[in-house]
């Protein structure tokens, strides 16, 4: 139990996937323009990462390990994640149109998000149990969501600020992301398991 809680906090704050490990930078910069889209994307990411970590863990320990095929990890995980996301999308469209509208375009976008794959790979590499893997997935995706929301909040304010001409647009966004990452370095070494 103690380990689960420390996993939760470590991967939300200390070892944030976006700000400390630099996974999923593309959606972090791409959909953080507005708070609304950031919330949608964050929700979809939590959903997909948790589910895919669960399934890839099962695939790894019940298919790949017994057959001695650990080297196929990467390819299999990509396949599983892509198939899973597509399946979930089809399922949601029929059963819950509201949720489907909410997650909308973000679901297919996440299929190729490296953070999703990274969580699946790291869960196996760190010898997590099934429960630990799922908690790890939830924590990593919550951290991603938090980073996205913080970033969009800052960017909404930046839109109204007087930014020097040479720094407008992408430049100031990257600088902001860098400073945000530096700020999160303050959590370094506060927790470990």
């Amino acid at each position: 139990m103690e380990k689960l809680i420390s996993i939760l906090f470590i991967y939300i704050l200390v070892d944030n996937f976006v700000l400390q490990r630099f996974f999923g930078i593309c959606p972090f910069l791409g959909v953080s323009r507005k708070m609304e889209t950031a919330m949608g994307m964050g929700m979809a990411v939590v959903f997909v990462i948790t589910l895919s970590t669960l399934v890839t863990w099962l695939v790894h320990y019940y298919i790949l390990v017994p057959l001695g095929l650990e080297f196929l990890q990467l390819v299999t995980f990509i396949l599983v994640i892509a198939g899973l996301v597509q399946l979930v999308e089809t399922f949601l469209r029929k059963t819950s149109p509201t949720l489907y509208q909410g997650l909308g375009i973000y679901l297919p976008l996440i299929t190729t998000n490296c953070a999703v794959l990274a969580v699946a790979l790291l869960a196996v590499r760190q010898d997590f149990s099934l429960l630990e893997s799922v908690v790890f997935g939830i924590a990593a995706s919550l951290g991603f969501w938090m980073a996205l929301v913080i970033m969009s909040g800052i960017r909404e304010r930046l839109d109204l600020a007087k930014v020097p001409a040479s720094l407008q647009g992408t430049a100031i966004t990257l600088i902001t992301a860098g400073i945000l990452s530096l700020a999160f370095m303050g959590f370094r070494g506060m927790l470990s398991f």
Binding site: V59, I63, L64, L67, V75, T76, L79, V80, G83, L84
Partner: peptide
């Protein structure tokens, strides 16, 4: 067989 199987299963 394993990869093909997983692929076929999801397909």
């Amino acid at each position: 067989i394993a990869l093909g199987g997983v692929g076929a299963f999801f397909g």
